[in-house]
Design a binder for these strands. Sequence first.
DNA 1: AAACGCGACAGTGCATACACATTGGAATAC
DNA 2: GTATTCCAATGTGTATGCACTGTCGCGTTT
Lengths: 231, 231
Amino acid sequence: MAKETKPAKAGAPMSSSHRAHAQLREQLLRSKFLPGQKINEVEIATSLEISRTPLREALNRLVAEGLLVDRGRGFSVPGLEPEMVFDLFEARVEIECATVRLACERAEETELEGLSDFLKESMAESPDASVDRLIELDIRFHDTIAELARNKVLRQTLSNLNDRIHLIRWIAMEGRRERTQSQHREILDHIRARDTAAAIAAMREHILHRNEDILEAIKAAYGHVYTRSSA
Amino acid sequence: MAKETKPAKAGAPMSSSHRAHAQLREQLLRSKFLPGQKINEVEIATSLEISRTPLREALNRLVAEGLLVDRGRGFSVPGLEPEMVFDLFEARVEIECATVRLACERAEETELEGLSDFLKESMAESPDASVDRLIELDIRFHDTIAELARNKVLRQTLSNLNDRIHLIRWIAMEGRRERTQSQHREILDHIRARDTAAAIAAMREHILHRNEDILEAIKAAYGHVYTRSSA
DNA sequence: AAACGCGACAGTGCATACACATTGGAATAC
DNA sequence: GTATTCCAATGTGTATGCACTGTCGCGTTT
């Protein structure tokens, strides 16, 4: 399950701009660039060993995805403006709830069993897994639900929103390991019981939704990012 | 001397790639290109009187927005695959309902009054307005609700979804003029009464949601588009 | 006549070059 | 010492050229 959404050949030699897009997305998720930082095209082009032309094509895609912003002259990493982060989390809640509802209607028993097995395995390795690994598992759980909702647009939208709040989720994951796991279990159980209302309620509770909590995560994110950069 | 801030927003002299993006989006919404059609870069670059470099940057943004697709070698207009259109409408329903709910909680009385006035004016000019004009009014109504929901991400997402189903909406608008208007009125009245459940229900009913209806609109769209192209 | 081959063409993907804007700093004036 | 002006350096936005690849037409072969 949770196959990647690339129907193209696996190790096929993709174009430079596609590779650049994928690599930059990865680096942005990993906070290689700081919020608000300006993007130096020649520097990145050099580091990726390509020219500026395909690089700029990738940058333009990232802008359309909200992973970069276009400031008339040059690109930069979006800042962590609280209002925007609030909006992103709120939008995520709405879409996650929609996918949960649809998954309740459409998921097959065997698929839910598979997801249950996945959760069991996740819980086994959870205690001593890295935060990166935990996030990976978390994303996989939510993406699988979106897959079971049978709506590619919602799934894609959700994936994009998650990209844009990756850092904050990363920060907030610390100290919520067991809580996250048990909530996942609860959500899944409600889906398996086809209790749509309960599943939605659990999902709504599961996602960071209190603005104070989000704000705290934002502050922690700043701390994390700057100590890391100065280290 | 301290100069005032630059006109970064309005009709400022935007870059070629930005202009190209705006113009192409417009042309795509107006179905200047047929579903599935391949994009010839030199031809379009010539027609827009720019070179291929900024054009390709615009094309890449449009791909990220789902208004074009990237087929390994070259770009093309997305086809009207029913599954994708179903997904788009379904996603739209979910997000519209989310914005209606939020608008119910957050909109101020004066704002709702303004929207009511807008509807009244729309109804006045409705009987003999062009379909283009009707769509414009329709979009404005829904976008205003999204604005009242106070969530830029949801609003932006909605705008993008609406772009992607613009043709189908255009087709389906014919013969639904009064129905659309009265449903808008109904939705707004529920919002003003802060009756969230009723507002959501009305919105859900308002948006094209039966797959048979959508399929019919798709067929009509093909007819529309091909007769128009051969004319 | 059909199949094959091949050469010219069309069209994309990328690198490079250039024009222009912005910025930082040094030199100079006050 | 501060302010100002000018120039160099930096960096973006766009045009152009080139290489490569897929395609189509036409002639050759059997």
